[in-house]
Design a protein around this nucleic acid. Structure first.
Lengths: 223, 223
DNA sequence: ACACTAAGTGAGTACTCACTCACCTAGTGA
DNA sequence: TCACTAGGTGAGTGAGTACTCACTTAGTGT
């Protein structure tokens, strides 16, 4: 399964290899990722970072001249490289899992994203925490997603719409609705930090709900 | 309209009057609410609090002996008095707006909660921020909500279910689904801090989606 | 062998923070 | 009038913070 490999940490570690950084600088950034997601930005001291990275405090400041600079160095590639890369991978999977049935499409997308959210919940927490203070990051990420959607997913949705399996809403609206439902279902588990979400049964319920909610409006007869 | 008066700040201010506090102590707590929601708990210094409350730093510590104590003094009544009170008010409105049509029920509940979320978005932000560090608060609040739901809303939903307008899911599941969708729709506006959500048109879309998604399963024929 | 450079070091600096305490003031009861 | 109390004061304290800089070390080209 693809989602088991879709840990943002791994993708991030991979993206670090390509940058021309020394081992110690990499260790610093990795320590930042670990500590920021575990304790949050404010509660992490530069001393903590230095200790976990087995590095002196001076080294922490050698490349990025402030603690904020470290966070930026983390979030920038996260937003501009890691997230788009994961998104692209995901879109690829969607296309490969191409199905004539909208329900099957929903099942795949819901199951995959739920698993993704649960395995990356720590990172999602620091992203949320960051967005509360600085909303620009979210704007950038959301923008990239909407680009990716119109590019890859819109044609797929259009087919379901023409087959009469899907409401005639804009692609972004449909995807936002799906995302809302998935996020709403997973959010409590992410915020509470517990992991006892049964993905299989949750997926069935959510898919059932979405399939009906996003079906074309044939209910006019009811009025 | 009820929701215009449903500002948590107002409800909180009212709850302060009943407590036997001096004017200065009230000023301290009010300043805390303002600053914590504006800048967040960590970024607010006790000096900031003292200045905004026009009080010495000693006074800040006279009653509540730590900064954490101040937050607790804020969140405890928020969780145990203000939220339940608002919830009860809301449930009352729901019962008063009692309608035979599930769609009308949805319209009221969605519109009301969206307006509520938007007008209290600052406070929601600090709640989210707090929950990221300390999930206990959320557990308490969610527990109280689920109590209120089973008490007040379950019988209403049961009627819609018997009338064949609503799926045969547990009341909490249905309410969670509604909440997820509303939260998912409003979340970007809360996190981004912008207010340009057109509640009327958003309500129409959400209600349409929910009404279909929560309709009884008559789609078996499709398979 | 020598100079040059870049990475790394860690004790030190300046500062902020949460919190304290000796003192003040006004009200109350005898 | 005096003692007592409770609320309020603000300069002060120590712990901890982000950040710096004179210095060491290792590698490289000549």
């Amino acid at each position: 399964m693809a989602q088991s490999r879709q840990l943002v940490e791994d993708a991030f570690a991979a993206s670090l290899q390509t940058d021309d950084l020394t081992d110690k600088q990499r260790a610093v950034l990795t320590a930042c990722l670990t500590l920021f997601s575990q304790k949050g930005f404010d509660a992490t001291s530069t001393k903590d970072i230095a200790q976990l990275a087995h590095v002196s405090e001076g080294t922490v400041y050698k490349k990025y001249r402030s603690k904020q600079g470290l966070l930026d160095a983390l979030l920038a590639p996260l937003a501009t490289v890691v997230v788009p890369r994961l998104a692209k991978e995901f879109m690829g999977e969607v296309v490969r899992n191409d199905s004539a049935d909208f329900r099957a499409f929903l099942d795949f997308i819901v199951r995959d994203r739920m698993a993704f959210a649960i395995s990356n919940r720590q990172l999602i927490r620091i992203m949320i925490g960051r967005v509360l203070n600085d909303s620009q990051t979210l704007t950038v990420v959301l923008g990239q997603f909407s680009d990716a959607i119109t590019e890859t997913i819109e044609p797929i949705l259009k087919r379901y719409q023409q087959a009469g399996q899907l409401v005639d809403w804009p692609a972004t609206t449909i995807m936002r609705t799906i995302a809302s439902t998935v996020i709403g279902t997973t959010m409590p588990y992410i915020l509470l930090g517990t992991a006892d979400l049964d993905i299989d049964s949750a997926t069935v319920k959510v898919v059932d709900f979405l399939a009906k909610g996003l079906s074309p409006e044939e209910e006019r007869r009811r009025r």
